[in-house]
Design a protein around this nucleic acid. Structure first.
Length: 96
DNA sequence: ATTCTGACA
DNA sequence: TGTCAGAA
């Protein structure tokens, strides 16, 4: 189907995640290639957690509110990691 | 039916 | 980023 559970947490297949985020599955795969999200995999199939969904929402916000492209987001992620900053808070502050 | 990867008139 | 082919 399009959803499964693990430890009480819902996991969504790429098609469902894409619907929730109103974007193309291709886009989600690209974000993964860029190392922006790491959906859980089972039998080579991607399963997105609610957290993954939230992370991607943030990515979209960064792109259209700050006019950043994918490479910009990638740079931001790299910086956050380099300075040991919590990604969630980091992004929220960028959006303030 | 659904997803995956790789490729691009 | 969208779309399509070929395989799983």
């Amino acid at each position: 189907m399009f959803m499964m559970f693990e430890r009480r947490k819902p996991l969504f297949t790429i098609s469902v995640a894409a619907e929730m985020l109103d974007c193309h599955p291709r886009t989600l795969r690209i974000y993964e290639e860029e190392g922006l999200v790491h959906p859980h995999r089972r039998n080579n199939i991607r399963y997105y957690s609610q957290d993954d969904i939230e992370t991607i929402k943030k990515i979209c916000e960064l792109m259209d509110e700050l006019s950043l492209n994918l490479s910009g987001v990638r740079a931001l992620f790299k910086a956050a990691n380099k300075f040991h900053i919590r990604l969630e808070r980091f992004i929220d502050e960028m959006l303030e």
